[in-house]
Amino acid sequence: MSPIPADVVIAIDGPSGSGKSSTSRGVASRLGLRYLDTGAMFRAMTWWMLEHGVDVHDQAAVAEHAGKGDIVSGNDPLAPTIVVDGTDVAEAIRSEAVTGSVSPVSVVPAVRTRLLELQRAVIGAGGIVVEGRDIGSVVAPDAQVKVYLTADPAARAARRAAEEGGSDVAATEQSLLARDRIDSSRATAPLLMADGAHHIDTTAYTLEEVIDQVVALAEAVEAVQ
């Protein structure tokens, strides 16, 4: 394996269920890089709003409280953590309540501005794999490696349902497609493939094959420097 730049930033974007998390953690682990799940940060913010009785459908109320809550993301790809005000919320942010509320919270510009600052602070001098929906386009537009993962909706739904312990696949697919519409149409930082991103449809590949492809892209960065 060719050495990669110490300051490399690998941005992995795509819709829910496309394989972002597993791929990002796998790439970071294999290359010895840090890892950041920006989606967990939005969920953490949503959890804080719900815990403090904020109406997540009231954008003004969400914006008013967007600066509150101390959110700390652990960067070990083998054991990522997310802590809010000193409380480990790694499991809590995956609850149905948070999942059903994260979309209205994430579209509020004040929330995105606050978390963008936190995300860039974590990225710092690089040496990290960052996953989300607007990493290559907004959070780290200068990332040396940009990847946009997609997958067939049915495959995405099956993966997500399995992650959630056997949820109804058809219902999960409809939920994912609804989230896609929200993410793609929001005014601030919509879900899209960033300029210069490499598109990988993960439907026909195993996880290891997708990781191999992203690692190859990272190695190619060093090859042309």
Rank of each mutant, 00 (worst) to 15 (best):
M41Y: 11
A161K: 08
P3Q: 13
G53I: 06
V89R: 02
G166C: 13
V145L: 11
A216V: 07
K20G: 00
A79E: 09
V84Y: 00
M49F: 01
G26T: 03
R25N: 07
V27L: 15
I12C: 06
T188S: 06
T38W: 10
A151I: 07
V84W: 02
D85N: 05
Y35S: 01
A155K: 12
T23R: 01
A194F: 08
V147F: 13
V122Y: 06
A155Q: 15
E208T: 10
R179C: 00
D76Y: 08
D85K: 07
S21A: 00
I71K: 13
V83R: 01
I82G: 03
G126L: 05
V224R: 13
V129P: 03
I93N: 00
L149T: 12
G132I: 10
V89Q: 02
A170K: 05
R120F: 01
A90P: 04
L192H: 13
V221L: 10
V130L: 05
V129T: 03
P5K: 14
T188E: 10
G165D: 03
I135H: 10
V210W: 08
A161G: 11
L217G: 06
D13R: 15
I71A: 12
V145W: 15
A28F: 11
R43C: 10
W48L: 05
E117L: 11
E173Y: 07
L177H: 05
I182G: 01
L31K: 13
A223Q: 14
E64G: 06
V224K: 14
A216C: 01
G127M: 05
H52L: 04
V122G: 03
I200W: 14
V56H: 09
F42G: 09
R181T: 02
S103L: 13
S21T: 00
V89T: 00
T38S: 08
